[in-house]
Design a protein around this nucleic acid. Structure first.
Lengths: 205, 205
DNA sequence: ACGTTAAGTAGCCAGTTGGATACTTTAGTA
DNA sequence: TACTAAAGTATCCAACTGGCTACTTAACGT
């Protein structure tokens, strides 16, 4: 359940996953990957690939599970790091950025895949973000200013912010030196959106 | 300048571009394209490709230019369709969706490429969106409620909305039957964000 | 010390690829 | 009508691919 991803995997498997992620970032898509090239990048014979994966698609499934595990792990850690009652939302974007940069290739590939062709990788990534969104909504809803807001409207706002954060996160992974600027951008979006939700909600009440 | 894109191109060139876009949508990335397969899909001998393009990358550049031309053309049309003084913003998302569905493959590939690896295609697409953003900001700024808003803050809000719209547009291209839902989502994001900008702006004034 | 199994390797295969060179067809136009 | 240039084709090539079978090495419990 809660174990760190790919921790118990054999060396070769991890090397292959890392090589695949790295190459997929360069190529722009995991679908452009070439089996032999991945093995070469990992410093292994191309046949070793078959010791760990059935084919490329099965490898992508593993990568997607890794991504999902990282996200779950990150959320759990963030939750444990703040006092109960205090909202996570203030720190969540920074946490996301931290997670992302620690597994930069996997995150880049996974987030890009959000709008790729339908497939197991995309489904898993989308589900992770959907879970995260519902988590954040419930978290925010407990704030006094937001308790009166209709859950559906709040969820829509959170979805908007997650789309925005995903975008900025990909920018961050490409230009880590822009971290502060991107965080500020995300924070401003957060403030504007929440102010908007509150304004619209109290107006309609 | 203002001419419709690929209008004067020879038949084969258009066939190849259409085939490439179609396959790139299926594959998830133009970088996964295979020259011979593109030609096959277009019903042409693979050598004919070289009559029109130097290589795959030069073809992608052409595709990017097509995308940019479509966007410019769409904006010009939208501008002409509303009375002067009336803001475009109310209809702009619907217009974007219309444009996108008319050139579904090119738009899908181009918008996906926004977070692909750096390259000419991506640069052109980003520039198109940046131009569109500045256009929209200037347009919105003329509204009475928004005249007092700091341009930089308004631009940030527009950027947020464009990121959101891009996302929803890709969803729309994959599920055209969801058009109305997605348009409503975009409209709600628009209202929330603008309400937020106004609230924050008047608060700090 | 030995046997079992997982991890890794070597070499082969038929099929496909990007690209070159040389040829044919089409369409315009002088 | 004959000439030309653009568009399209046929064929060949070395290089690479995914996947197969068969072999070697490393690790580990007994």
């Amino acid at each position: 359940m809660g174990r760190a991803p790919v921790a118990l995997s054999p060396e070769g498997k991890r090397l292959l996953l890392a090589a695949a992620a790295k190459l997929a970032v360069l190529r722009g898509s995991p679908h452009a990957l070439v089996l032999r090239e991945v093995a070469r990048e990992a410093g292994l014979n191309h046949n070793t690939f078959y010791r760990h994966f059935d084919d490329m698609e099965s490898m992508m499934r593993v990568m997607a599970e890794d991504f999902a595990a990282h996200v779950r792990h990150g959320v759990r850690e963030a939750r444990a790091s703040v006092k109960p009652g205090v909202p996570l939302s203030g720190i969540v974007v920074g946490r996301v950025f931290d997670m992302a940069i620690q597994h930069a290739d996997i995150f880049t590939v996974s987030l890009r895949e959000l709008h790729g062709p339908a497939g197991p990788l995309r489904d898993v990534v989308r589900q992770s973000l959907a879970d995260l969104a519902e988590d954040m909504r419930a978290d925010l809803q407990q704030l006094p200013e937001l308790q009166a807001v209709e859950p559906r409207m709040l969820r829509a706002a959170v979805d908007l912010l997650i789309r925005n954060t995903t975008w900025l996160c990909l920018d961050y992974l490409e230009q880590p030196e822009q971290r502060q600027v991107l965080l500020d951008t995300a924070r401003e979006a957060f403030h504007s959106t929440m102010a908007g939700v509150i304004a619209r909600s109290s107006r309609s009440a």
